[in-house]
Simulated assay, not measured.
Amino acid sequence: MAIRTYIPLRGIKKHLAIILEKKLLKKHFPFLKFQVEKGKLMCFGYVQPSEYSPIFHYRVEWDPGSSPKVFPINPSIDYDDDIHMYEEGCLCLYYPKDFIYDSKSHIYDTIIPWTHEWFLFYELYMIKGRWLHPYVEHKKI
């Protein structure tokens, strides 16, 4: 059983948390590009769910101490409750009551795989007209 490395945000400087997370991301996803801006890690990646799909480009923004946010870049995807996005335009990747992104969480083994899965289900949504992945309803009433 592998020992899970985690970032203890209490007692560690944010820039060191960013360096560690960036190192883990580079190791597991060498195609990602990085930028650090105002104490925030920005990761730029892409995924093509199938050979017939477009290549989806996305940006992950992470400020240590908060949950990462993923924004589709190209092609542009407009906000829609039915495709599990938040009004600010970021993807809804998990139900916050079921998973809390904390100092033991890492982007490489949660957010990136979930982002790629999200784009696969987005493609299925475009074909079927409904979201097929299990979800918790979060539309405003």
Rank of each mutant, 00 (worst) to 15 (best):
30 P>M: 07
75 P>E: 09
98 D>P: 03
77 I>F: 05
26 K>E: 11
76 S>E: 12
45 G>P: 02
38 K>P: 09
61 E>S: 15
77 I>G: 07
62 W>Q: 11
89 G>E: 07
100 I>C: 03
70 V>L: 10
64 P>M: 04
41 L>H: 07
87 E>D: 01
84 H>V: 01
38 K>H: 15
45 G>A: 00
40 K>Y: 00
65 G>V: 06
63 D>F: 02
20 L>H: 09
57 H>V: 03
52 Y>P: 04
40 K>L: 02
49 P>D: 02
60 V>L: 15
40 K>D: 00
39 G>K: 10
89 G>A: 09
100 I>G: 02
29 F>W: 10
63 D>P: 00
59 R>Y: 01
65 G>A: 04
69 K>P: 14
59 R>Q: 11
58 Y>L: 12
88 E>V: 00
79 Y>E: 12
29 F>P: 01
33 K>W: 04
78 D>R: 11
98 D>Q: 13
40 K>S: 04
77 I>L: 10
54 P>S: 00
99 F>R: 02
69 K>W: 14
51 E>F: 14
25 L>I: 15
37 E>C: 10
98 D>H: 13
55 I>L: 15
65 G>P: 04
78 D>H: 09
86 Y>A: 09
57 H>P: 00
86 Y>P: 07
88 E>R: 03
85 M>E: 10
100 I>T: 06
22 K>W: 04
64 P>L: 03
67 S>G: 05
85 M>K: 10
33 K>S: 11
84 H>A: 03
25 L>P: 04
43 C>Q: 05
99 F>H: 07
37 E>G: 06
38 K>W: 12
42 M>I: 05
68 P>K: 14
99 F>E: 00
29 F>C: 03
86 Y>Q: 08
97 K>A: 05
34 F>E: 06
38 K>M: 13
25 L>S: 09
88 E>D: 06
74 N>P: 00
31 F>Q: 10
25 L>W: 08
79 Y>G: 12
85 M>V: 13
21 E>N: 05
75 P>I: 11
49 P>H: 04
78 D>V: 09
18 I>R: 07
28 H>V: 10
21 E>M: 08
70 V>T: 14
48 Q>T: 13
65 G>Q: 06
85 M>P: 05
19 I>E: 14
84 H>M: 07
90 C>G: 06
65 G>E: 05
53 S>A: 14
82 D>I: 02
82 D>T: 05
59 R>D: 02
19 I>L: 12
73 I>Y: 00
44 F>N: 01
53 S>P: 13
76 S>P: 08
57 H>N: 08
28 H>K: 15
58 Y>R: 12
97 K>D: 04
24 L>S: 13
99 F>N: 01
44 F>T: 01
